[in-house]
Each structure stands twice: as structure tokens, then as C-alpha cells.
């Protein structure tokens, strides 16, 4: 029997997380994951372990028909084995694709224990390792949701427009694989997800429920890997952007690396190719991830957490909130040496 949306609540471990990074997030928004670990360890006092032997989950390869299912399962079983070896039971997953994939694999193993046995055999044969499934598995945004009020209590900034005193209008975008396949694994389910709106509300912002809120961002794996296919991907983002436009949002927040990437980059592409921008005042709409949103309210230096790696400039947002930043240092390395602004390349690389 199905449940009311409000009853979609999940158990989120209190402490002691085995953190698995996202292969693509590290490239798209390199600061976000370090920021997340820093918040957990140094602001919330939690124990987080990262294993240098952890690899990609192969999710993108799997979803693009490049990596066979059993290979993917064996790789995932290896991650679980690393966790067992380090004596952790709570898995914290950075990427929504991984989170969805892990959920799917655990579900398949639940229904087909013999498949789990088979994979255990493969893993043992290939690496000599053995694994146990996590006792608690959550997405990184779940953890921020759990501690949203603690974060609010130590926050330096509120998600409020300091010029008008109005809360910022913020669009949430939940990665499809966070709750569409297993609504019971997402806070708030999939139709009225609360995981990001919970953060926005707790930190002073106002959420925007626009008609295409639930629509896929268009990431879709095979739909962007090949250049010719990207029209499918960008068309989906465009549906969302057109639908949110009348609400004049100040910001978008996404909990999935792919969504954050495409909602950001496609705005640039649409501006260049079709001459359209979707934010108020002829501007594009800044996009940040859940970790970055937490970092912003906690008062981290925007350039230290990598906000300059977003294509849509975030300065408008920082100015609205009233965050101090040094425009000179936007493109500086960690030591403060200027490394030069990004240059426009005429040939698209891949």
C-alpha cells in the first residue's frame, strides 16, 4: 500500500559515514565534495571516512549500455567490501546516479539472493574480498536535510535578498534517480520531495513549485555522451527553464551532479544558440548544489568552495545575499596566484 507523501521519511544515520564520491561531480564542481566533508567534520563534528581505493560506480557506463550489469554489480560489491574492511555500516553517497544504482542493485539482490551470491563469487575470484550490504544508505543531501536546523543555527547568512528583505525564490531540482524509482528511499517521496525544499525553508529561502518541477533535467546518460544526441538532453532542460521563467527564480538548487551541470551549462548553450535567457532582468539563473548552498549560508569563501566553476556567474546571487568576495580572486589558485580567466574555445572539444 502506498503512503501519504508526508510519510515518506527515511532513516538517516546520525554519524560515522563511509563517504563515496561521485566521478563526475569531482570534474564538474570540484569543490563541492570537499566542502561537504568539511561541513560534516568541522561544523557538525561528524566522523566521515573516505577510502582512497574507492572507484567509480560505473553508473554512467551502465546506464549507457557500455558496462554490463554484472560488472557494475561486482564494482558496487567492491565498494561495500571496502566499507566492511574499514568497519563502517553507514554509506553516504555523493551522486544521485550512484545512489539510484545502489538502491536498484540492493533491490535486485533482495528479490534474487542467488544473484547476490553469484556477485559475491565474482568479487572473491577477482579481488579476494568479501562484502556486506550497508545497514544505512543515504544520499549526501539526506544528511544535510537531517542537520538542516543545526546548520541554520550556525549559519552566517540567510537566503534572503538583503535589498528587499524578501526570501530568495529558489527552485529545487531533485535528480530523477533520487526517488523516482524508489519513492520510499527519498525524503518526501518523488512527487513532493522535501529533501531540498527542507534546506531552503530552514535557511530562510522560499521554494518555488513550478509546473515542470518534476520533469527530468535531460541528463539521461546516453543522451549527452554523443554530441548528435545532445538535442534531446537540452530540449528537456529547456522545458524546465521555460516553465520556471515566469516565477523569476533567484536560484536553482540540484542534488545531482548531472542535473546541476546541465541546468547550468545548457543555459549558456541556449543563450548562445537561441538567444534566450530565463532569469529576471535578462540574466541567467545561477545553479548550485546542496553542498554549495550549505557552504554559502555557512559563510565559506565562494572561490574556495569552487563557485567559479559554474558557467552561470554566481555573483548576482552573492550580492543579493550580501556575501563578501574579492572579484579579483575569482580565478586564483589556492595560494592566491592569479591563473587567468577561462578563455572561449572555438572548437567544442568533445
Amino acid at each position: 500500500m502506498s503512503k501519504y507523501w508526508k510519510e515518506y521519511q527515511k532513516e538517516i544515520a546520525e554519524d560515522n559515514y563511509f563517504y563515496v564520491r561521485s566521478c563526475i561531480r569531482q570534474n564538474f564542481f570540484p569543490g563541492a565534495e570537499n566542502l561537504f566533508i568539511d561541513i560534516l567534520r568541522n561544523k557538525l563534528g561528524k566522523k566521515v571516512f573516505e577510502d582512497a581505493d574507492h572507484t567509480t560506480c560505473t553508473g554512467i557506463g551502465y546506464h549507457s549500455d557500455i558496462v554490463p550489469l554484472e560488472t557494475t554489480m561486482t564494482v558496487v560489491a567492491r565498494q561495500f567490501a571496502l566499507m566492511k574492511e574499514k568497519e563502517y555500516k553507514n554509506l553516504a553517497v555523493s551522486c544521485v546516479t550512484s545512489f539510484g544504482l545502489y538502491s536498484e542493485i540492493l533491490d535486485m539482490w533482495k528479490h534474487k539472493p542467488e544473484l547476490k551470491e553469484k556477485i559475491a563469487g565474482y568479487l572473491s575470484e577477482a579481488t579476494g574480498r568479501s562484502f556486506e550490504v550497508p545497514e544505512n544508505m543515504v544520499h549526501a543531501s539526506d544528511i544535510l536535510y537531517k542537520f538542516r536546523n543545526e546548520i541554520a543555527a550556525i549559519a552566517k547568512h540567510k537566503l534572503v535578498n538583503r535589498h528587499t528583505g524578501e526570501p530568495l525564490k529558489i527552485v529545487d531540482h531533485i535528480g530523477c534517480h533520487y526517488a523516482k524509482t524508489f519513492p520510499e528511499r527519498g525524503v518526501g517521496g518523488s512527487e513532493f520531495p522535501q529533501v531540498l525544499t527542507g534546506l531552503i525553508n530552514a535557511w530562510g529561502g522560499q521554494t518555488v513549485d513550478y509546473p515542470e518541477r518534476r520533469h527530468c533535467c535531460g541528463f539521461g546518460f546516453r543522451n549527452y555522451l554523443v554530441q548528435e544526441n545532445r538535442g534531446y538532453s537540452i530540449s528537456q532542460s529547456k522545458i524546465k527553464l521555460e516553465s520556471m521563467q515566469p516565477f523569476e527564480p533567484d536560484l536553482m538548487v540540484a542534488n545531482c551532479p548531472g542535473c546541476a551541470m546541465f541546468l547550468d551549462r545548457w543555459q549558456y548553450t541556449l543563450e548562445e544558440s537561441e538567444g534566450t535567457v530565463y532569469g529576471a532582468g535578462g540574466l541567467k539563473i545561477p545553479v548550485v548544489t546542496h553542498e554549495e548552498l550549505a557552504g554559502i549560508v555557512l559563510g565559506y569563501d565562494p572561490w574556495q568552495i569552487g563557485l567559479q566553476t559554474h558557467q552561470v556567474p554566481v555573483e548576482v546571487l552573492l550580492d543579493k545575499i550580501g556575501i563578501d568576495y574579492d572579484p579579483e580572486l575569482k580565478y586564483a589558485d589556492l595560494k592566491g596566484n592569479l591563473i587567468g580567466d577561462p578563455q572561449m574555445i572555438n572548437e567544442h572539444a568533445c
Binding site: 554530441q227 548528435e228 544526441n229 545532445r230 537540452i234 548562445e272 544558440s273 537561441e274 538567444g275
Partner: peptide
Amino acid sequence: GKDFGFATK
């Protein structure tokens, strides 16, 4: 517009 080798549908 700039041609990226793909377009919206």
C-alpha cells in the same frame, strides 16, 4: 545562433 552541432527539438 552559435552552432553546437545539436539543437533543441
